[in-house]
Write a protein that binds this DNA or RNA. Structure first.
Lengths: 344, 344
DNA sequence: CTGAAAGCGCTTACAG
DNA sequence: CTGAAAGCGCTTACAG
């Protein structure tokens, strides 16, 4: 193996002490322009790239941030949300010399132990807390571990946790209002898992929009953000004995796709007999038929904002404690899966 | 910040030297069972977790592996292949104490510089080379950098590069054979970008299968693995003046989905007038109508195998030089998008 | 079996 | 402005 060039080589070549080389290379003061230039030249000539390992140990930083994705691999394979989110994170941090350490967890317990391990082994300088649950234990955990963190769409942002927030309520409310405007009165909701903050936010928006239109939010099905959950919701809402909805607002696109397919299998035509909407705005929503009406979220921008904020928190925890970055809410993207209420 | 417990604390508490503590904790010989037990207890009591930073520097290992994904963020958002592949990688390496460093690149040049940076900064102990191109410059690059690497589906496996391989030809050939069996004679192919090895492999399988059935492989459209590319292929094949195919074998599912939608828009019914197949077996193939006939690849297993092999290469480069791990080929998954050739 | 010492490649006070 | 020294938290020969 070829000898790797270290800062010692650079200092030697430039004829200075390694402390001067370090200062010069890192743009710290205390080196004359002359010397700095000479050192930089030497580094250039030798093809010097600082070793992250030495830097990590002495600077007490890993130059990485962590993200734990808590999903079964199966779901990860069909939900394009994460690819986009991660893309946004990566784009931001790589520019600032950081790398992303990505972990997977099957459930909340494993998720927590992953965060513990990341912190204990000093693998990362901070973490992104994604898909927050109500009373999410990770918030107390990062506090206990003194691990810099940024929450993505937390419930009530805790005073000490920095977070990014993209409101989903306005988009959902807009969609419900449109459905009301199209004459619908029996508007159902297929929710996400009830422990997720973003599930509740969307459900709440559906409920509020109905109430303010003078309608009663009765038709609620617990979903789970999956395609299969959407199919099951169709069975429950369309095959049951209770009153049937004429419009169904789903908590995400995957569930909406499942609902549409199942409803079609049951002989319903969309949107003539039932209007259906989703949430997320994934590309596949435009690939199914009818094309899916949804709310266009911005996962890439959300990931980028979270990463930016986290790097700020890491470099200056005090100044960024509890800082909240607001993103513009997702907007309704009206396509072919909603229409006028069918005549009674 | 609370004092982080280090190996010094453990050694002190156990009343031994830190070298003994290190040996005991890492299961190295040279410590009596007695002492080892005492040290382990001390570590347990103190909640000691070794710092990766110290370990990295002295062991000259980063305990991470790198993966550079070369895709526009847009494509990453709709193609579920990567989520699955990464999931497989993660599952394997986390068990062995490694973490995944994930990077993104927009094009081949940026991709190469990412690999260079990973190697130069000693960010990672090895890399996975995914989506290999013909004469891929990364192979020479990792050789030059002396960076342990594993190729995923390389062309002719270079003698010194370890690789995993899941053949795609048998599945594609099987699909073409079935189409021939259904009476089709004008079977087109929508390829992937021609510089990718897996594009050529699939195209070659289509060509060979046709030839061995006594048919001429004439109808070939250059695609790019995207949905939009599939749509464009439909325009070219169905709107052109040339002879039209009755069956279209696409190089991946995304393109097949685009083809189907566009063909339907042009008034063709699938599979009555045109049979269409894809490749990959992504979940969304089952969500469109008609459901997509495809070849079921195993991205998760492929990622897991690549990761396993890479860790082996890292720990013993000599023994694993040029080792090839063969995976069972993907199998045809016949659904509703193919059928009998329409009567002439 | 056990321990003192050197070293991995940097950064960071600190003295000149 | 410049340089010698200590230290980050480990591992790894090496001597006892």
């Amino acid at each position: 193996m070829a000898h790797r060039v270290t800062i010692v080589d650079v200092a030697e070549r430039a004829g200075v002490a390694i402390s001067s080389a370090s200062a010069a290379l890192n743009g710290r003061p205390g080196v004359s322009d002359d010397t700095r230039e000479r050192i930089k030249e030497a580094a250039e000539e030798l093809g010097y790239v600082p070793s992250l390992r030495g830097r990590s140990l002495s600077a007490k930083k890993a130059f990485t941030i962590g993200l734990v994705v808590c999903r079964s691999p199966e779901v990860l394979e069909e939900d394009p949300f994460f690819g986009a989110f991660i893309g946004g994170v990566e784009q931001v941090i790589s520019k600032r010399g950081y790398a992303l350490v990505l972990q997977m967890a099957a459930d909340a317990d494993e998720e927590e132990s992953r965060y513990r391990d990341l912190a204990a082994g000093r693998r990362v300088d901070g973490v992104i807390l994604n898909e927050l649950r109500v009373n999410d234990s990770r918030i107390a955990l990062v506090r206990e571990l003194e691990l810099p963190a940024v929450g993505v769409n937390p419930a009530e942002p805790p005073a000490d946790l920095a977070s990014v927030h993209q409101p989903s309520a306005p988009g959902v409310k807009d969609l419900v209002d449109r459905l009301v405007g199209l004459g619908h009165t029996r508007i159902a909701h297929v929710s996400g898992p009830p422990d997720f903050v973003h599930s509740l936010e969307r459900e709440g928006a559906w409920r509020d929009a109905l109430l303010s239109a003078g309608l009663e939010p009765r038709l609620l099905i617990d979903g789970d953000f999956t395609y299969q959950g959407g199919q099951k919701a169709a069975d429950l809402l369309l095959e049951g004995t209770q009153e049937k909805p004429t419009a169904v607002v789903c908590a995400n696109d995957l569930a909406a796709a499942g609902f549409i397919i199942r409803a079609q299998e049951l002989g319903y035509s969309i949107p003539e007999q039932i209007s259906v909407s989703g949430y997320d705005g994934i590309a596949w929503g435009g690939y199914i038929r009818p094309t899916l009406t949804t709310v266009q979220a911005a996962p890439r921008e959300l990931g980028a904002a979270a990463a930016d904020l986290l790097l700020d928190v890491i470099s200056d925890p005090e100044r960024n404690k509890g800082r909240v970055v607001e993103m513009p809410p997702g907007e309704a993207l009206v396509r072919d899966s909603i229409g006028r209420v069918p005549p009674a």
